[in-house]
Simulated assay, not measured.
Amino acid sequence: MARFRFAVCEWSFPCWGSLAVKMAGEAGFDGVQLGDAGGSMHNFPLRDKRVQEHYMEAGARYGVAFPQIHLYTLGHQGYYRSRLDSLEGKLCLESIRQGIIAASEMGVPSVIIDGMRMNDEAKKRHVFQVAQYAVRTGEEYGVQIGMETDMSLEDHIRFLDALDGKLKLCFDAHNPVMYGTGYPPDMIRTLGRERFDHFHIKESQANEDGYLSVETPIVLMGQGCTYFRESAQAVKEIGFEGWIVSENFYFRPNILEQGLDCVSAARRDVESLHAVYGTE
């Protein structure tokens, strides 16, 4: 088996569901990191057997695996940072439980939760309690829990070690650059292989002042300033094996203006991923 497998986020394409799976397969990706199909806003569609069958049939048809479910809607709702006894906190826990059960039913090994914007002690406490719940529930159903975060290196280590290594990272190598929390290659080396579930990879160009933000353009891999090649080297140096997941956005105007469509743009990123990570 190859040391690395390359996936893409479902929300990297303009439409979710079988069309996103088809586009991923046509671009040459090995897998798709699923979103939650609307999560609590649509009564947890991934628990619906027909929805599950729809995805599994599409995966088989286009030769695409599903290595993770990312609780995308829940992350955008921001309920992770709410007290657990609040309406939002209770809905957060229920969303996690439903996502984990869906993953167990679909044979998806990992569910990804959010640890972003913990900018005060109360939010850190709430997110830690959520992570404890997710880990316990994941153990019950045989599903690994990963977390994406914008924390500093020191907070990464404290947070993960407090959970006895049971929580793994969905490490987005773009986040430390955008949030100013560290140099991604050094963070990867220090955190070490065992703390990672998988990696998110995307690229941005800095603005005229040299800064990244949510407004600066996402670009194809190798065209930005987020240490794409240096981070890949660090991933290889620590001996990581597993999934490298593109979280690029192939429908963005600045990408399509290059004369590409979504699939041809995604195919260029697949080629770049193979070039920097290798295919051994």
Rank of each mutant, 00 (worst) to 15 (best):
E140K: 15
A122W: 13
M147L: 10
T149E: 10
Y133A: 10
L153V: 09
E105W: 12
H156N: 15
I113Y: 10
F128R: 00
F159E: 09
M147K: 01
A162V: 02
E140C: 11
A103V: 07
D114H: 11
Q129W: 01
D161K: 03
E148T: 03
I157E: 12
E139D: 11
R158D: 11
V111H: 02
G146A: 15
D155T: 09
N119D: 15
R117A: 14
Q129R: 15
V130S: 02
A103I: 08
M151F: 14
S152E: 08
A122D: 15
M147E: 01
E105P: 00
Q144K: 15
S110D: 11
K124P: 07
E139S: 05
F159N: 05
M116W: 04
M116H: 06
I157D: 10
Y141H: 12
V135L: 01
V135C: 03
V108S: 02
R117Q: 11
G115A: 08
Q129Y: 08
A102L: 04
V108Q: 00
S110V: 12
Q132F: 00
L160G: 13
E121D: 14
D155P: 03
I157T: 12
I113R: 03
G146T: 09
K124M: 14
V143T: 07
D150R: 03
D161R: 06
G138V: 05
V143C: 08
M151H: 10
T137I: 10
G138E: 03
Y133C: 06
F128E: 00
P109M: 09
M106F: 00
M116K: 00
H156G: 07
Y133W: 06
N119T: 13
E105I: 01
E139F: 04
T149C: 14
A102C: 03
G115Y: 06
M118P: 00
H156M: 13
M151T: 13
D120P: 09
V127T: 13
H126I: 08
P109Q: 08
D114S: 15
E148D: 05
L160Y: 06
R136W: 01
H126N: 15
A134I: 08
Y141G: 01
L153Y: 10
R136F: 00
E105S: 03
K124F: 15
N119L: 08
V135A: 05
R136P: 00
G142A: 09
Q129N: 13
Q132N: 05
